[in-house]
Structure formats: structure tokens, C-alpha cells
Amino acid sequence: MSVRGLSFYRDRRMIFQGLDLAIERGKVTAIMGGSGVGKTTLLNLIGGRLAPAAGGVAVDGQRVAALSRQELFALRRRMGMLFQSSALLTDLSVFENVAFPLREHTRLPEPLIRDLVLMKLELVGLRGARDLYPAELSGGMARRVGLARAISLDPMMVMYDEPFAGLDPISMGVITKLIRELNDALGMTSIVVTHDVAEACHIADYIYLLGEGRVVAEGTSAAMQASAAPEVRQFMGGLPDGPVAFHYPAGDYLADLLGS
């Protein structure tokens, strides 16, 4: 998958300007950046839910923005996505949520669907929770169900939107392990969007750091940790001030206080 010269604006505000990145098949690639740099927007552009102003995204040789709705849907069947909110269908049980893509896209007989769903749930360790409803799940469990659903059609690529956000350390460890294992066992390509430095370095084969609409730095996790570039050091070290300023742009402080 590759992104070439991608530009995107939201309400005339620049999100991306000439963004270039390439994601290798079969690897776990992390896309990092602070809040508001457009990490989720990038996933939406890859999935074709948003259209770029210039440049484009190519997935498996297909230019996403140039696809018809039908072709786009055919491509999406080969992509899985895990939402930050898990986006489970609240009126369906865990079992039915994982079965949902199978029921919508295949005409498989019921016993086969049952077997497939149970296999996916076993992978994420929630076979025993199949009859629960999303409201009865903890955040970590919901995300694992979302993961089982994302891989239910055996996609070539899975996108994870902030998979570690808001989880306790144990759930986080479980998700980290699952992303890595599923990637290696199923031979998928994984794109992990996150601002979690430690977890990203732990599982990613390659890391892109985004800022101000472009790639600020890239490299393997070891290279990133050793990098001397100030942007990288600020992000990786969590320093409050640096190239990314602590203050939101504002007028002169004193004049502001003395003014009405």
C-alpha cells in the first residue's frame, strides 16, 4: 500500500500536504503522531470514506479515490478495520457481531458460519463470551470482539485506530500480542495508528511519525528510539515543549491581560 503526494483539507484547514508513505506487505507499520495530526483521517482516506484533494492512496495496486462504489466495496471486503470505539452493533450479540460480515457477504451454510465465528472468537480468547451483548463487555473485551470481527473475512490488511487507547495494562498487553500474532499467523498487513510510543515500538516493524501534514520522521523502532531529530525526541520522550509548541498560537500575553 502506498500514499503519494496526498493532500487533504477540512474546512479549509490543512490536514495533509504532500504526504508520502509506503506500507510493506506482511509487516506491522505504526503511524504515530500527536492528537489532531490526522491519523484517523488517514485511515479514512485509505478506506475510501474520504476523498483526497490531491494525490492519492493505492491499495494493492488500486487507486482508492478512482474506484466506483462497487469496486470500493469489493476492496473493503479485503480490509478489516478496528475502530477506537470498537463500533460493535449494539443490538447484536458478540457471536452475531462477528458473524455479521460473513452473513452479509457470503452465502455460507449456518454450521460453517458457526465454526468460523467460533474460530475467530477462540483466537481472541472470547469464545466463552459469545452470548454477551456489547453493553456487557469491558473496553478491552469489546476491542477484542472488534478485532475478531475485523478478521472474520480473512482480510489482506487490517487497520487499527488507536487500539491501545483507554485500556488497562493487561488488556493492552493482550491487544499488543494479538496484533503481532494475527499479523504473523495470518500473513496480513497491519497498520496501527497510535500515539502510544512504548507499545508501537514494541510491535511495529516500521514507524512513521506524522506532524504538520507530512511525515516528520520514519524508520524502524530501534532507529526511531536512537534518532537525534528534535521532533522525534520530543514525541518519543514525551517532552511538553519543543518543536511542537506547548502554547496554542495566541497574541501577546501581556497585551491580552491588560486589554478588556
Binding site: R49, F73, M79, F83, A87, L89, E104, R149
Partner: peptide
């Protein structure tokens, strides 16, 4: 995001 999720599942 249930509608967005469906869209990403090509539904």
C-alpha cells in the same frame, strides 16, 4: 461509529 463500521465492512 456503527454506521462507519458497517461501511468499512463493505456493508
Amino acid at each position: 461509529e456503527q454506521l462507519a463500521g458497517m461501511e468499512m465492512m463493505a456493508v
